[in-house]
Structure formats: C-alpha cells, structure tokens
Design a protein around this nucleic acid. Structure first.
Lengths: 123, 123
DNA sequence: GTAACTGCAAATCCTTTGCTATGGA
DNA sequence: TCCATAGCAAAGGATTTGCAGTTAC
C-alpha cells in the first residue's frame, strides 16, 4: 500500500473525531484541507482502512458510520439526538454458552442499544 | 387500516418464510400469486406492518431484512452462507447494569453475532 | 517506469415518492 | 361516495465503478 495524503487525512479525521462519523462528514472535513478530494476517494480509502484493520464499520439505520476505536466495544444510539456512544459490555460468558448450545462458531459480535441518552433525558 | 390482498400476501409470506427475507425476496414470492404487484407496494406495506408491530426490521450489511418473529430475540449470521439464525440470549441484567453506569435510558437492544454456522463448519 | 492512487462523472443498488387509477367499507 | 391503497415510473440517497491522468516509490 502506497502512501497518499488523502488516505492520511481520512484516517486522521476519523481518529481525532469525537463522533462516529459518516462518509459525508469525513468528506467535508477532509475537504477543508484538501479541497478537491472526491467521494470516490473517501469511500475507496475507507474500504482499505477497514481491510487493514485500522478502522471499523458500524451501520445505523442503514447508513455507514466509521469508528477509529478498535478496542472491542459496543454502541448506544440515542433516539432523540442520534448521538452514538461507546459502551462496554463483557459478554464472553454468554457468547461461549451460546456457541455450545447452538454449535455455531462465533468470530465476533456487536450490540446496538437504543434509548434516550443522559443528555436528552434531562431536556 | 383498510384490507388489501397485497398486504395480506406480504405478511403471509414473511410469517411462513423460514428465512429472514429481504424486500426483493418478498416481492418475488408475492409476484407468484399477484403478478402485477410493484416494489412500491411491497415497501409501503412493509413500513405499515412494522408500524403496526406485526413484523420487525433488521439490517445486515446495510440491507433490510424482515422478521415475523416478534418474540424478543437476537441474530446470528453466517459469514460463509449468509444464513441468519434466531438466537436466544437473555441480557436483562447486563442492560440494567449498563443503564445504571451510563445513566442512559434503554428502550431496546439487538445483538448481531457473526461466525460460521454449524452447517458450514462441517463442510 | 509502473502500478497504485486520484478526481470526475456516470452507474448501480436499494428504497421512497408523486401521480393517477382502483377498490374496500 | 370517499379515502386508503394500488401500479407505475421517476426520483432519491448512499455507495461503487470506469476511465484517463497523476504520483509515490
């Protein structure tokens, strides 16, 4: 894989983002520093970064978000403000039990929790 | 809500399906009995059935699947054959604990487990 | 030099919507 | 009758792809 400033910028923006950004958000951010970047380039680089294991894809309501936090974790999405929060739930025991019961081999799992976040609960 | 044979057929096919079908699968199945049904009608009816709580929407890899089993349950998807299995995992305790820790209010959750299913493990 | 990468624009895929016609109550 | 629903086809939004030019190594 050859170096490119476009890929570098895409990765940087994801890693420094405080949100779980969409391709569109990333595109607009990178555009600030490299005004002629195209959506094609953003998507191609996102795919490569996922394949290299540097970022992770999570889908919410059918649209793709990208996550630079590669530690195993799960997600909470607020029904009011749509903000996505990382959550830690350890489920190894449940998953092992499920493997035994079903006889499937489990390689990964992901929990999406929905509700009202602490900020929106107050308002 | 007024009766329509199209909605009836859409619901029947989902309820009797052994898979978690996509809109396209449902469309093709209903077409066998009502050859002039359109995609617009299928999608409009799917939305209504979801709103009425008769079926459930689950997204895999960004595409919509529909599930007629309204008992709370989760899903396993096989990386080899893409078949989706229902799985039972009770996580109430973990979710309650998470609510306390994070101070978010949880309305629902869904776990997607990935791996190799028992059939594909053999081959 | 050359293969990976880019920007651009067109294509593709899934889903939604506008419009006029139909049909259930 | 009248309004929910249908079929059709066009629009929409997100993502992918083909191509010709550019650039890292």
């Amino acid at each position: 894989m050859r170096y490119s400033i476009q890929r570098e910028l895409v990765l940087q923006r994801i890693l420094s983002a405080k949100i779980h950004p969409t391709a569109e958000w990333i595109f607009n951010e990178v555009k600030k520093e490299k005004s002629n970047i195209s959506f094609g380039t953003v998507y191609r680089n996102l795919t490569q970064l996922i394949d290299r294991g540097l970022i992770r894809l999570i889908q919410f309501n059918g649209i793709a978000h990208y996550d630079g936090n590669m530690n195993p974790h799960n997600h909470f999405i607020c029904n009011e403000c749509s903000q996505i929060y990382d959550i830690e739930i350890e489920l190894e025991d449940f998953i092992s039990e499920m493997e035994l019961k079903t006889n499937h081999y489990v390689s990964s799992y992901h929990i999406k929790v929905r509700g009202t976040c602490r900020k929106c609960k107050v308002n």
